[in-house]
Each structure stands twice: as structure tokens, then as C-alpha cells.
Amino acid sequence: MFDEVTAVMRSAWYWTCLSGYRCHVAMDPVIRLRSAVALAGRFPVLAGVDLDVWPSEIVLLQGANGAGKTSILRACAGLLRVAAGEAVVLGVDLTADPRPVRRRVGLLGHASALYDDLSVADNLTFAVRAAGGDRRRVAPALERLGLLGRLPSTPLAALSAGQRRRVALAVLVARDPELWLLDEPHAGLDAEHRDLMDALVLDATARGRTVVLASHERHRAHAIAGRIVEVAGGVAVAPAGPIGGVGPGRGASPIPAVEAGRVA
């Protein structure tokens, strides 16, 4: 209830700022990266990223394969160590210790991060309880993702790639973290569940959550994103700014806040 009220107030506040002033200076960004460098071995997968993401935004990272989109998401999840620069997510300094942020962040990656031998329901129950959540969230999440009938008791190994993706998404819905990081969220889903994916993202931001997604499905991703950030060579090279026609409740940020070579 409190989250919904906060989200409505935030949306109303955004609308008052539509003239483009940098009103967000009064708020703390959910993600703040400054010259963030991350290494995979000796190879710099992030080579000095600057990025700000504000509460309730939907930000689309787009770029070629190997550009660094997944690395940005993993760094924000606290899974990829930021070796240099500034990296603060949900107020947690990732360069000092990324572990405190993880329970507050959900990452839907290429892998499902689930156990093949456990049933769908067991996987969800473990994930929710491990994150400190209430197991009563499991059933509504299964229902929301259409994982009904015999599916909850089916071992994950017996599911198709699309069904596994839905189970991973159900974990995210059941956990309902403050920051959703989605890496190619539409991959493997049929048309019906792609629509559902979009609805879940919009619903999450309406409840005050923040979403950063990386996607090659431009048409779909552009339809829900409030702002686009171009990534290349491990840096955010060019902000595309807000997408026209996107208003509050769809994760819009009215402030492009573009600086030379920076994305804010």
C-alpha cells in the first residue's frame, strides 16, 4: 500500500517537472555509475561507464553483441566487481561491498539460475525464502505467469526453454525486488508471454520499482522504455533520450539530462 502511494506521488511529481528541468537532483538515483570499470580477468568489460537511473524509470540498454550491456546489468546486481570508479546502487557502494544490494535487486539473466531436479514450485519456494520473502507469494506468482495445473509439480528439467524463462520470471515477480535487471527478457517467450512480460514491467514501475533492461528486440523494448542508453565498447556512448509519448505509469523520465559523453 505504501509503495503504491509512493509511486503515485512520484508520478505526480514527475508530471510537474515536464518542462525538462533537472528536478531529479532532489532525489537519489537508484543507479549511479561514474567512470565505472569492471574486469573479466584482465579484460575490461566495462571501460568507464557513466549512467544514472532514477526511481520508477524503465531504461533500455541497447548495443551490439559484446558491447557491455550484460556487464552493466551484472555490475548493478553486484555480481561483477567494479574495480575502479564510482558505483552506487540503491544507496549501496558496490566498490566497497556489493553483497548488501543483492537481496534488493532481481536479475533475469540468460541462465535461469534454477535447479533442474527441483520442481517449479520448489524452485520458487527456495528462491523466495532464500531472499527472505514469504512463501505465500509463490502461488500468486505462479498464477500470474500461467504456471498452473501440473506445471508447479513438474521438475524444471522437463520444461521447454520458454517455460523455464517463465519460471525465472515468476521468481522475480514473487521476490518483487526494488530494482529489476532484465537481460533479453523477451528471449524464448511466445507472443502471449512477451505481452505479459511487458505488462509486468509496466506494473512494476507503477508500483515504484525501477527497471533496466537490455534487449535486441527494439520494437518491443522501445514501446515500454522511458529512456534509451546506447552501449558500445564497454561504455555508455550515446544517450538516445526519452521516448516520445511515454508518460507516468510507464516508467517515463522526462529528463534526458545529457552531458557530453555522459548518460545521466
Partner: peptide, 15 residues
Amino acid sequence: LEAADGARDGLRMSG
């Protein structure tokens, strides 16, 4: 078990 399909990341993300 933890190496398969990114389960170790899930364990780390759980907090």
C-alpha cells in the same frame, strides 16, 4: 548443482 544454469548466481543474489 550450483554450476549448472547459473544457479550459483541465484545463490549469491539471494543474500
